[in-house]
Amino acid sequence: MLEHFKPVDQTAIEERCARIRTRSIKKGAKIEGLKMALGMIDLTTLEGKDTPGKVTQLCYKATHLHDELPNLPHVAAVCVYPTFVEQAVSLLKGSGVKVASVATGFPAGQTSREVKLADVKMAVDAGADEVDMVISRGEFLKGNHQFVFNEIAAVKETCGDARLKVILETGELGTLDNVAKASQIAIQAGADFIKTSTGKIKPAATMEVTLVMLEVIRDHYFETGRMVGMKPAGGISNAKLALHYLVMVKEILGEAWLDNHWFRFGASSLANDLILQLMKQETGVYQSGNYIALD
């Protein structure tokens, strides 16, 4: 499965990320970038304390980011636990916002294949457009790559028409080599998206890890012509960082991926910072979070 694997050059990855961090995007291009990033967000709530009220609020926010600012896009999707999918689907009907659901024993994934597939089926039956699964990190680290591959393939089959995002939980994989290997396994097993993190483990998404994953996507595209999406998640909370990610996507994968069909941010607080920066661009005055709805 990994016969063509080439080790990752960590120093080169870090240097390239450092160069990308020095890019500065201003004026018109900045406004376009901020709006694009807003439209790529998977607005997320994944907490034990989630209630239907919280999900209603989140769905409202997804379609009304900040009504005082005209011409704002809506976010790409909301991301919830399977128990809230049905509710989210009915609230978002006709809005264009997708409903994503985590599944497979999120976030640890420490349960049997049967239970994981039942979890996925529950989400899909309730109408989820997208499923975010977690891989079995323990099996991966044991070297049991075939197990991980089979599991992803089984989940993909259960997903049916729903798009599958595969969470590698890079914060638990230890090395960039492992990130690259897990990315390859996920893509070969049929992932529509690969995603960095659950958001429950630190470090979550970093630019370095994302760069490694983007390069795997690029190599796979050159080999097979099949596009795979990318979703960094967790820890991307400000606009400047989001723009750096967009620069990276454009440089590694090109314009085709600068679309929320192929690139997403898994985030909850990023939306408000993007709105703050857009308002700053609009008014010329530094803004306060007090004037934007928290959720």
């Binding site: 005055v285 530094y286 803004q287 306060s288 979070g289 007090n290 004037y291």
Partner: peptide, 8 residues
């Protein structure tokens, strides 16, 4: 002027 206009 910057201090005066800053919303926060």
């Amino acid at each position: 002027p910057i201090m005066a206009s800053h919303m926060d």
